[in-house]
Amino acid sequence: MFRKKQLWIVMIGLMLFAILILVDIGTKEIIYKDPPQVIAQSPHYKAEVIWPLTMKDKEIAGEASGVAIAASGNLYYLHRGSSSYGGDKRITEPTIIEIDPQTKEVKKRWGENLFVSPHGLEIDPYGQIYVTDTILNQVFKFSPEGALLQTFGEEYPFYLEWTLRIRNLIPHFPTGINADTFARPTDLTVGKDESIIVSDGYRNHRIVKFDASGKRVWEVNQFGANAGQFHLPHSITQDKDGNLYVADRNNARIQVFTPDGSFRESWNQSELGRPFAVDVGLDEHIYVADGGDALYSEGNQEQSQIVILDRNGKFLSRFGAWGTQVGQMKIPHDIEVDHRGTIYIADLQNKRLQAFYKTEQK
């Protein structure tokens, strides 16, 4: 009984300490850049809103979170309905919208009462759908029909939130977390063997690979701004050779890793802005959603851009403007490119999915 009382005293003390330093954590060591020169519109792309189009869908549309393309060609769009990032209740609206990209017809709406704060969306070569939830701290795998097949990630104890916040200020602070527990996972990429690599995320600052059965294979896990370290890995994708591209958001850069998780290089040129999401096109160009600094306490630049790089990280172009008009964005949260070169953007604060169609072939 005495030991239990001591444990509770220690835990309460840790929580109080965490509260005292909470304000500092969100801004500590965040990298800021001078805003790059931008082009509001590109002559090579024409924009269109894909969803929501009907009054019914506009009534349920919430924060735009993710977008993915199935092998069938259909689009899958993830949003947060009447909730928002960090919500505390199950979302009652259908959060996953399946769309025919040619006709704009909604084929299916589902995902109600499944998620609390859905964040990342991915579809594997077999049409299976994966969603990360930053409050449930798990990755969910669904069949193409929406049946839950598998859940990755162990239970997230109540005290972890506080101990992880302290650890991010005091390296090596004991947290009690194990390597199979996610702490605000943001995104994932899936291999042909159904292995998954998760960017994990707001608290853990790591990327971690699991095989199809859920067994952990490797992880890269270190908080910081040096090569191979992370400060909010927010998005992850891979190219045809399995090389990994991570949007290291608070460090305002893209980091590149080999298929086994070895660090290869880092791209932090000013033209990148602040990468929120990254995708690789069939043309092997790297497409980046620059969400700017609007969500940051020291950020005064309302910037939303699409950035295109070659496979070696060489800057090719960037375009887009902040706003609510078609073609404008208010924080592009996710990006996906189809086989035609069409760029799809989950437009966070505008609560919509936009497409940018190529108007000429290069």
Rank of each mutant, 00 (worst) to 15 (best):
M1Q: 12
M1H: 15
R3A: 12
R3K: 15
K5A: 13
K5H: 11
L14K: 06
F17S: 06
V23P: 15
T27D: 15
K28W: 12
E29H: 13
I31R: 14
Q37S: 14
Q41R: 14
P43A: 12
Y45M: 05
K46V: 06
K46S: 10
D57S: 10
D57Q: 10
S65A: 15
G66W: 00
Y76P: 10
S82V: 00
G87P: 10
T95A: 08
I96Y: 02
I97T: 04
D100Y: 03
K104E: 08
K104A: 09
V106P: 10
R109P: 00
W110M: 10
G111H: 02
G111S: 01
E112G: 14
V116N: 05
V116W: 04
E122A: 15
Y126K: 14
Q128D: 07
I129P: 10
I129R: 05
V131N: 00
D133F: 06
F140S: 14
K141I: 06
F142I: 07
P144E: 04
P144V: 03
F152A: 07
F152C: 11
P157S: 10
N168P: 03
P171I: 05
T175I: 01
T175P: 03
I177Y: 02
I177A: 09
A183R: 07
R184C: 08
T186F: 15
D187E: 12
D187S: 15
D187P: 10
T189V: 15
T189M: 10
V190G: 08
K192L: 10
D193I: 04
D200P: 12
D200W: 09
I207S: 07
K209C: 08
D211H: 04
D211P: 03
D211K: 02
G214T: 00
G214D: 01
K215I: 11
W218I: 06
E219L: 13
E219K: 14
E219H: 10
N221Q: 14
N221G: 04
G224H: 04
G224Q: 02
N226H: 12
Q229F: 01
F230N: 06
L232D: 12
P233L: 02
S235F: 00
I236V: 04
K240T: 13
G242A: 01
L244R: 01
Y245F: 15
V246A: 01
A247N: 11
I254K: 04
Q255S: 11
E265P: 07
W267H: 14
N268M: 08
Q269H: 09
Q269D: 04
S270W: 05
L272P: 05
G273E: 08
G273V: 03
F276E: 13
A277M: 06
D279T: 13
V280E: 02
V280K: 06
V280G: 02
G281Q: 07
L282P: 12
H285V: 05
I286R: 06
V288Q: 03
D290I: 00
D293P: 07
L295W: 05
G299R: 10
N300D: 11
S304W: 00
S304T: 01
V307C: 01
V307W: 00
F319W: 15
A321E: 13
W322K: 02
T324Y: 05
I331C: 09
I331Y: 13
H333L: 12
D334F: 06
D334M: 11
E336D: 12
E336T: 08
H339D: 13
I343Q: 00
Y344F: 09
A346E: 05
D347G: 01
L348S: 14
Q349L: 15
L353H: 05
F356R: 00
Y357S: 05
Q361S: 15
Q361D: 12
